[in-house]
């Protein structure tokens, strides 16, 4: 893991209480580099047919899976929020969930294909027509806990 440059947290008044914001600021950490793998999941696939605006699909594409070891090292619990920033500087905030025991090695994140993963893709396709959409370096910062 490399330590990345930290930038100040963006406050999300619409989504968290003042208490959470104060708590978050007192727990502010440096960003770390992770490798993000977006991919297909069953629920995301079913959600395409059932309706992209329905809760099942939205929940699936807006949940970041984090390895068990990284969750405990960062003091994260399911439902906490982290900010991911791509190499191109695009940022998203997303809720985390603990990955199944050995599904992810430490240092790797997984998210179902969707709006969040697309926001983190760069526009450059390196002459291939395909933006790098898996194995992307992202900076992770914890933004809200508990």
């Amino acid at each position: 893991m490399n330590s990345g440059m930290a930038s100040g947290p963006t406050l999300r008044y619409d989504l968290v209480t003042d208490f959470r914001i104060r708590y978050r600021m007192s727990n502010y950490r440096m960003a770390e580099t992770f490798i993000l793998i977006p991919g297909r999941t069953s629920d995301q696939g079913c959600g395409i047919s059932e309706g992209k605006f329905l809760e099942k699909y939205q929940r699936e594409i807006n949940t970041l899976m984090v390895a068990v070891g990284d969750m405990s090292r960062l003091g994260l619990a399911d439902g906490d929020f982290v900010r991911l920033t791509s190499e191109e500087g695009q940022s998203v905030e997303v809720a985390v969930s603990t990955a199944k025991k050995d599904e992810l090695p430490n240092g790797m994140l997984f998210i179902a294909y969707g709006d969040i993963s697309s926001r983190l893709m760069g526009g450059d396709t390196h002459g291939s027509g395909m933006p790098t959409s898996k194995g992307m370096d992202v900076q992770l910062e914890v933004v809200s806990q508990g």
């Binding site: 526009g123 390196h126 002459g127 027509g129 395909m130």
Partner: peptide, 8 residues
């Protein structure tokens, strides 16, 4: 590809 592909 990389020029006439839609991402580009």
């Amino acid at each position: 590809p990389g020029e006439y592909t839609t991402s580009d």
